[in-house]
């Protein structure tokens, strides 16, 4: 079971993030003051949204473990809803989508019960095999493969992959990792989000060569390498405090999170480009939709979970 009281390291990290955000807000205010002729509205909206997201995330992490699980289940549900609202679906499949939504509470129930075996096969095996059966019962074969494929892809990313954050939360505290699951969640979530910001900042500072010009023209080698290097360094520093990893393996985890975050980002970019849209929605002012914010976590959370699970649990 998870501890009812948050470990001091968790509280300190969250407080540090509020301080960092306050500094960032001051920097944005200073920029506005120095160059009032430029349009800072998007950057301001983005910073304001960070305040809201950090406040909600902190409340979910600090108040109670069951609240944290419910919070991550809600994120999965909202992400899946955003995805299913964006992609083309078949009118015939409304009832299939209803069952697809039902996988969210079940997946998080397995996690709450600490039932690792079910958590790891529920979507890849049972969901994968049974949802097409429900589609066959409806009897419409046109676009069957496309509909089944896109639905499963969404379930894998936004239910299965994202639920690894909640699975990290359930990992027990050990002498090597007294901050427990909450420390691991904080490690991967904060580093992934910082990695996004760092890649953006490094890209602005020295970005020239584009990494994937046809998928995400904004991503440059300067941003990618600078961001990943900084994330790796931060991970090496924070790992002994929040995780069972030492400085060395912490750096490896940071490299993994930085690269995985980048891949998640560009994969969702490719989806949006395929659908011909810029943002996945307008849930988060200045950022776009929820998928625009959690895209990198869909890759970094499961990869970090299995890295740490293999090494220590």
């Amino acid at each position: 079971m998870i501890h009812a009281m948050p470990h001091p390291a968790v509280t300190v990290i969250l407080a540090g993030l509020f301080l960092l955000l306050a500094l960032a807000s001051l920097a944005v205010a200073a920029l506005r003051h120095a160059r009032p002729q430029r349009d800072w509205s998007e950057l301001s909206a983005r910073t304001r949204s960070w305040w809201v997201m950090l406040a909600v995330f902190s409340a979910a992490m600090l108040l109670s473990p069951s609240l944290s699980l419910a919070f991550f289940a809600l994120i999965s549900f909202l992400a899946l809803k955003e995805y299913l609202s964006l992609i083309p679906t078949r009118r015939a499949d409304r009832r299939v989508l209803f069952w697809a939504y039902l996988t969210v509470p079940l997946q998080y129930l397995w996690i709450a019960q600490d039932w690792y075996g079910m958590f790891i096969v529920f979507i890849p095996v049972y969901g994968f095999l049974m949802l097409p059966l429900r589609m066959v019962l409806i009897g419409d074969t046109r676009d069957f493969l496309r509909a089944a494929g896109t639905l499963h892809w969404g379930l894998m990313l936004f239910v299965f992959a994202l639920s690894h954050i909640a699975a990290l939360l359930m990992l027990p505290a050990t002498p090597l990792a007294p901050a427990g699951g909450a420390g691991l969640v904080l490690f991967v979530v904060v580093l992934t989000q910082l990695n996004d910001v760092l890649q953006y900042l490094w890209g602005h500072a020295l970005g020239r060569q584009r990494v994937l010009p046809t998928v995400s023209p904004g991503k440059t080698w300067g941003g990618l390498l600078g961001g990943v290097a900084t994330t790796t360094a931060l991970a090496a520093l924070a790992a002994p405090w929040l995780t069972p990893l030492g400085h060395g393996m912490g750096a490896v985890a940071g490299l993994l999170i930085g690269l995985a975050g980048f891949i998640g980002d560009v994969v969702i970019s490719a989806v949006k480009r395929d659908l011909g849209i810029k943002d996945s929605g307008n849930l988060i002012p200045g950022h776009g939709g929820l998928l625009d914010r959690i895209d990198s976590l869909t890759y970094s959370a499961p990869l970090f979970f299995h890295f740490i699970h293999y090494l220590h649990y």
């Binding site: 992609i87 083309p88 679906t89 078949r90 499949d93 046109r142 676009d143």
Partner: peptide, 15 residues
Amino acid sequence: LPPLQWYQGRVDEDA
């Protein structure tokens, strides 16, 4: 508003 996208599907033609 951004257009809603549908696959065609047979039920669609009935509708």
